[in-house]
Amino acid sequence: MSGARGAQTSSRALIVATLLAVALPAAAPAHHILGIPHYKYSDEYPQIPYMEVLAQVGPHDLVFTHFPGFPEPGEAVRFKLYIRERDGGRVFRQPLRIEVTQKHFLRRTEPVVPPFDIRPGSGPERNDYKFFLTFSEREAYELRLRFPSGDGFETIPFPVVIGKTDDRPLIFGAVALLALAVASVAAVKRRRRWRRRRREVPA
């Protein structure tokens, strides 16, 4: 009896420990909501991740980030762009033009809003271009930055995905199609075998 009770206690402890383990990561974003200041997010740290894309154009390094990293429709997304010369580190501060396009798979890419200019901020943020956008639809977008390169301009695409695309229906659909095909073929084969056996056995 005592052994059974011991087992019961240890399984209860295991359940409590599992629940705690599940609940703890959920508390991390709550900590962020409380407003405790911190400066950098990453997926390794249990906070809301940001997205960072690095690019190189001529002598310049571009660091493009958006927060949150996986924005949802209707959520204001904060974009930041920091550009500096690779050698020397001089910060680029000229006005730049941005175009926002919506990328549809197997359809044409369309501009979502008219192109607009961005400028670096002031004060502590004088090195960053910062702007906010809100996307209403769950879709893949592209922010196209027009950046001076040589004598002309280079268009640099930065991907922004709004709402984690739910591909589960697609994957389940493909698996279901395969399963259906296998089941149909198996049924036809079974029927063929049955007919063949009937023909072979005299009435």
Partner: peptide
Amino acid sequence: TRSPRATAILGLVMVLLAVLPALV
């Protein structure tokens, strides 16, 4: 080539293209 999702869809389509005719 610049879309991981489209690449995966293509890979999945290739699975169907290979498997379904093999069953028929």
